[in-house]
Every structure is written in C-alpha cells, then in structure tokens.
Design a protein around this nucleic acid. Structure first.
Lengths: 117, 117
DNA sequence: CACTATACATCCACTGTGGATATAGTTCAA
DNA sequence: TTGAACTATATCCACAGTGGATGTATAGTG
C-alpha cells in the first residue's frame, strides 16, 4: 500500500495520528489530547472519532494494542491504540504535503496573520 | 464576518484563493494554475471548481470582475474572478492555521519525508 | 474525421464531519 | 442525596465537500 494514495488525510485522521505519535492512547484520551494540543481550536466529536478510528484500523494506520497501564490507572472500558510504522510514514507524507502548501502560499506573496493566543 | 468562522478552508477553496492571490483569473485558468503550481499533484475537477466558486462568491471571498484582457487575448465565454480583501485575510488566517499544524507535528517528533520531484 | 483543448455548468454517488442520542459507571458539589 | 458533569464507547442522521461523468459548444490539430 502506497502512503501517497491516502493523501490528503482528513483533518481528524491527521490529528489522531499526531495524538498517537508519542504514546499509545485510548479513544477518549485522543479527543482530550487533540483539544489540549490545539488550545481548544480543534475538537473531534464522538461521531467523527470512533468512525475515523474504525477506518484507520482497516487502513492499517493504527492497531489496537493489548498493552495496558497498571490496573490502578486503567479502566476496563478503554480501547488502546498504537500508530503503525505505515501510519507514521503516512503522517510524514502528509506533513510534507502541508509544508509544500505553506511554501506555495508564501511564494504567492501570502504571509500568515499573527494569531491571538 | 469573522475570518476564523470559515476555517478550516476546504482544499479547493484554499487552492482557488492561492490561484487568485497574484492575478485575476477565469475559472478554467484557475484549474490550470492549480495543476501547474502543484506539479499535477492537485487537480480540481469542474464539479468542485464551479460549485466552489459559487460558494466563494456568496461568502464574499471573491468577486466577479468586469476588467478583461484586450479582446485579442480574451474569450467571451470566460468569467473572471478577483480575490477580495476579506478573501485575502481568510487565506492568511488559514495559512497561519496550517503553519501551526506543521509546528505541532514537529513538536511531536515528526519530520516530513523527502518527496520525489 | 476524430480527438483534444478551451470554457462553462449540472448531476450523482461517495466520503468525511458535527452533533444528537444511547448506555453506563464515577465523581463531586449544592 | 441527588443531579450534574465527567469518563468511555458506539451508532445515527443530516449536511458539506469532492470526484468524475455528462452536457453544451467552439476551436484547433493530427
């Protein structure tokens, strides 16, 4: 399977892969991580989240893992996910695409406006 | 109207705004410009193109203009479009969003993969 | 003569998203 | 103590955006 065939990645897919880039996480924790990381600007609702996870499993971007934290920090209901090597190469390909897009825009004389933080 | 309300911009909208950033263009020329600029990687088909232009006119991102090139370079069928100041501020806001997205990904230890050109 | 290019426009099917709803246990403040 | 908010997963409906085909018409090229 060619990484470029999946580009451009849907917003939710990109954010979920970012959330799993540095650690295994369960579904709900992924949503929390995305909201925290983007300062609340990006919110992935349950509909998008679980549907997107399903698709990503089928595409081989992520895997469900049996590795769990010690029982006192765990919750039976949780399902943990891990990014696959393929998933990692796909985010990187999309990251390259985004980088090019930004360069393209600058080449057209556009500069990002300062954001209010 | 707040620029951030329209973010994230759909792919086609972003590319059309880029195509109009440095010059007025007619519909078909916009498609050509996008394909050329992205080395054929991005193609906006007619369905997406004309529907998106319609939406962008309604949103005030672009305007149809009566300014036309001299008759010997013109074609009666063409409809020319120009980016509005609002449109420009919206692309810039989206460009800022994309820049943040790229930074976010790098903060997670991801680096874009080298592309084959 | 047929095909490709130019130029606009509409239609259908598909994908992706937001938000509501469902279920169910926990936690915490009024 | 009770009801609201939080944790956690999952499904459903309606809507937005896209790709590609089709339609219409003219011009140019092999």
């Amino acid at each position: 399977m060619n990484a470029n065939a999946l580009l451009p990645l849907p917003e939710a897919t990109f954010h979920i892969l970012l959330a799993l880039a540095d650690a295994d996480r369960h579904g709900y924790a992924i949503t929390q991580d995305i909201a925290a990381r983007t300062g609340g600007k990006v919110k992935v609702g349950p509909g998008t989240l679980y549907r997107t996870i399903q698709r990503m499993l089928e595409q081989g971007l992520i895997q469900e893992t049996r590795d769990r934290p010690p029982p006192e920090q765990d919750d039976d209901r949780r399902r943990y996910y891990r990014i696959t090597p393929f998933g990692r190469s796909v985010v990187q390909a999309d990251l390259a695409r985004l980088t090019e897009l930004v360069e393209l825009a600058r080449a057209r004389g556009l500069e990002p406006v300062a954001e209010k933080v």
